[in-house]
């Protein structure tokens, strides 16, 4: 085991000793150049990579909706001891797992190489998180990510005390204008043969300083050889449904809603539900009648009742842009 103070340049000893993380540490900070065994790395340790000495200051957390958030030990938050710059590191973790989507099971993978390719491709794209990939001394492809200061899109749209109708006519057009740029970003990935892989409403961040919407987290991948981009497309539809309704509507949500209840629930037929998730309503116009048909028709492409699917993200984007031009 190597200790940081034995190896770090003398000029950084003071910064390490004074840091809030190491001040409360009851053991000497350690020094890692190989992140293969990432579970051995902890708060207060140093990861030396890319000519930087990065102090581990915390860990990111993630949970699927409804599941308690879990620490991701392969994704530490770090600070450059030299200049205080903050980064998120993604260490190599070749996890394989099955994702349940309605009645289907999809094999998913964490794919560091794919994320590295995406980072390279989008390095100048304003609607993606940025970062670079470097090999550590154990030949692990570590991704060094810039931190986006801002908030998750799904939290952002709930700001303010707006009714749904006020939200829809005042805030939604601008939300969709920015979302369309994100959709174009996904189209750009697909045109370059890459998937996002984990499109979710909390994987778009609204940057505080610029107001830009930016995609994060590209390391998931899946294996669907005949429809390689279908899952990305489906999830874009899910986000649009969420942004339109401002929440996810199930039968129970309708029943408990003060303006809806049994009368609205009685109008819901199987064709109003999601093609892949049979308890989620996508025919949002039945809940909020002021939603224009053109927008609602886009949502219905993701319904069980649809006869036509979008083949590409470009088709989805163009129809949404047209629908929004009417809304203003």
């Amino acid at each position: 085991m190597e200790y940081a103070l034995d190896i770090l340049p003398q000029r950084l000893h003071g910064a390490l000793k004074r840091h809030r993380v190491t001040r409360s540490l009851r053991r000497p900070p350690r020094y890692f150049t190989d992140t293969s065994n990432f579970t051995a790395i902890d708060y207060g340790d140093i990861i030396a990579i890319d000519n930087r000495f990065l102090l581990v200051t915390g860990y990111t957390r993630e949970g699927r909706f409804g599941i308690e958030e879990q620490v991701k030990p392969w994704v530490p938050r770090t600070e450059d001891l030299e200049n205080g710059e903050k980064f998120i590191l993604k260490l190599v973790f070749h996890e394989t797992f099955d994702m349940q989507l309605g009645q289907f099971t999809i094999n998913c993978y964490r794919n560091p190489e794919k994320e590295a390719r995406v980072l390279e491709l989008v390095k100048d794209h304003p609607h993606f998180m940025h970062g670079r990939s470097v090999l550590d001394e154990g030949n692990n492809l570590v991704r060094i990510l810039d931190i986006i200061g801002g908030s998750r899109l799904d939290k952002y749209i709930h700001r303010g005390e707006l009714s749904h109708q006020e939200y829809f006519f005042q805030k939604f057009p601008e939300v969709i204008r920015q979302f369309l740029e994100c959709v174009k970003g996904i189209q750009f990935l697909h045109e370059n043969g890459l998937r996002h892989g984990d499109i979710r409403r909390d994987h778009i961040f609204v940057e505080r300083d610029t107001g830009l919407y930016r995609w994060i987290d590209f390391d998931y991948d899946f294996y669907m050889p005949e429809r390689p981009f279908a899952l990305d497309l489906y999830e874009l539809g899910n986000i649009l449904t969420y942004l339109t309704a401002r929440e996810r509507f199930h039968q129970k949500t309708i029943l408990n809603h003060p303006d809806m209840g049994q009368a609205v629930l009685d109008t819901i037929v199987p064709g109003d539900l999601s093609v892949l998730s049979k308890n989620r309503i996508v025919n949002i116009k039945k809940l909020f009648p002021y939603i224009p048909d053109r927008l609602n028709n886009i949502l219905l492409h993701f319904s069980y009742g649809t006869e036509v699917f979008y083949e590409t993200v470009a088709e989805f984007h163009d129809e949404l842009a047209e629908a929004m031009s009417v809304l203003g």
Binding site: F104, I106, M224, E226, R227, A230, V275, Y304, T306
Partner: peptide, 14 residues
């Protein structure tokens, strides 16, 4: 099924 076709595709339709 419709859902299968959306997600996994159909070679004959393609």
């Amino acid at each position: 099924s419709k859902a299968e076709e959306f997600l996994f595709g159909s070679i004959s339709n393609g």
